[in-house]
Amino acid sequence: MDLMKDYNKKVMTNEALQNLISTWIPELEFTEADSQFLNITVKPEHLHQLMSQLKSNEETSFDYLFCLTGIDYEKTLGIIYHLESTAHRHQLVVKVQTEDRENPTFDSVWDIWRTAEFHEREVFDFFGIKFNNHPNLKRLFLTDEWEGFPLRKDYVDEINMVIK
C-alpha cells in the first residue's frame, strides 16, 4: 500500500473557494485577515443552507467538522466552525453571530455532521446558545440547576472563580 500518497495536496485555493461559495448565497463576508484560514461570516438565517451545501457540493465536500467553538464578543455571541475536506484537504472557517444575548438561537448542524451533537451541547452548557432541531439539547457538564453560563464574559462567581 502506498501510504506516502497525496499528504500535502490541496485542491481548491482560498480564492477559488471564495469565488464558488459567493455564488450560492448573497451577503456572505469573506476575509483572510488575522487568520491562517479563509473566513466566511454568514447570517444566522442562511447558516444551515450554507453548511449543507458546503458538505454536499462535490467540489467543496467539507465532510469533517474538526472544531466547533462558542465565543462571547461581549456585544454579540457567536459560533466558529472549523471545516476540512478529507477528500480535497482544504480548510475553511465559518462564523455566525447574534446580538440577542437573552435568547440566542442558531440552527443546529448535527444532521450534517454528527459530531456537532456533543459540541453544540457543550456550547449550550457554557454560553447558553440554543440550537433549533437539536435532538437532545440539555446541559452536558454542569448540573441542570446551575445558574448562568460560565464561559460568558459577564459571568460572575465570587466563590469559585479566582480573579487576578
Binding site: 485577515a33 488575522d34 487568520s35 491562517q36 474538526f66 467553538t69 466558529i80 472549523h82 472557517v93
Partner: peptide, 17 residues
C-alpha cells in the same frame, strides 16, 4: 488575530484555537 494548531496525541487530533 486567530490561531489554530493541531497535533496528533496518543488519542488523536488535539486542536488549540
Amino acid at each position: 488575530g486567530e490561531f489554530y494548531q493541531k497535533v496528533e496525541t496518543a488519542r488523536g487530533e488535539l486542536g488549540v484555537y
